[in-house]
Simulated scan of single mutants.
Amino acid sequence: MKHCVVLWVTAVSFPLMAQGNINTIKPTAFIALKKGSEQYTGVCKAAINRCGEETKVWKAKGLEDVFYLIEPTLEMIKFRKKNDDYIKEGQWKFDNKNNDENAMSEDLIKDKVYIYPALYPLSKTKQAIALVTKWQALYSGGSREEEYADFIMLNDDGSSQVAFKDVLFSSKAMIRACFTAEEYAKTSHCHDEDWALLNLKFIDEGKEYYSWKFITKSYTWPAFVEKVSTQPKITERVAWPFQ
């Protein structure tokens, strides 16, 4: 196991979203379809009625005719609507054993593995999904959660390849600091908290794959102080897929 590092990587509105002007290369967000809706029913029917209680059906944002069905078994199927038919265009199955060694300390227990509903650009023609493993620990005075992602390239033939491995995708830590009635009466903030905001930028440098810039803003918010006093620590790194 690795040494304990307390970090909360979270996201506002869209995790790992590229920021910038209108020409910025961005991920494709997924929009959840309501169960029983016409599009949801159409996709499930095309998938031979395999939609179970935990199955999710998504529409690719900005693409009115592209849909994805995601199973809790870590299988993803792509459909394209042509006229009134939903045609399968791709199918991928992922291994739920990824990231099994990434717990930051031995008290963390593996909770689940899931496909995050978005596509991340690797090049003009290739995209990746984030396969996320969630770890958690509960304490009498707080809790900790950590998520690690493998960004996996999707190939048209149903195969896949890990482009980036073991990326800290999200985590949070909160430890109780109030233990007496007087302390609780003194402040509404009775926990020590740490978190960070992670953004990704995708850069086309004319190579086979885009470079990815990881930008992390880390914060520490001690108990008994106002949140406005917290200041970010910013770190950046650039990496290329498959290196």
Rank of each mutant, 00 (worst) to 15 (best):
G42A: 01
A223S: 13
C4S: 12
L7R: 10
R144I: 11
A103T: 03
E182S: 11
I109Y: 00
T73D: 10
L131S: 05
F224S: 04
Y68H: 06
A137Q: 06
K2T: 03
V57Q: 01
N83V: 08
A47N: 05
E145N: 14
E183F: 07
L168G: 07
L74G: 00
K134D: 09
V162R: 10
L119Y: 03
A32K: 13
Y116I: 00
G52R: 15
E38A: 11
V225Y: 03
S170M: 10
Y139G: 13
E208K: 13
T235K: 09
P117I: 06
E89W: 01
W58R: 09
S218V: 03
M1K: 10
T10A: 07
Y114K: 13
D95N: 09
W58Y: 15
L119V: 05
K126T: 13
V5R: 12
S171I: 01
T125L: 03
V132A: 05
I70S: 11
Q231F: 08
F14L: 14
V12F: 13
P117K: 09
S159M: 03
E146T: 04
V12W: 06
R50M: 11
G158A: 04
K186V: 02
Y209E: 11
D192L: 02
A173F: 07
I234F: 09
I25W: 06
F202I: 01
Y219R: 05
E54D: 12
S160T: 15
G52L: 14
F242A: 05
H3L: 14
S188D: 14
S105Q: 04
K59D: 01
A181W: 10
E146N: 09
K110D: 06
E236T: 12
A103C: 04
I87L: 12
K207M: 08
V57S: 00
A11F: 04
E146S: 11
D204T: 01
L63T: 08
Y139H: 13
A239M: 12
V162S: 07
G62R: 02
R237E: 15
I87T: 04
D95F: 02
A239Q: 10
K81N: 12
Q161L: 15
V238S: 12
R80P: 01
G90M: 03
K126S: 14
D111Q: 14
I77K: 06
T28H: 10
Q91E: 15
E75D: 11
Y209L: 07
L63A: 11
E226Y: 15
L198G: 04
H189Y: 10
A177H: 07
S229A: 14
K26H: 01
P222C: 11
A29G: 12
I129L: 05
D150W: 00
P27S: 15
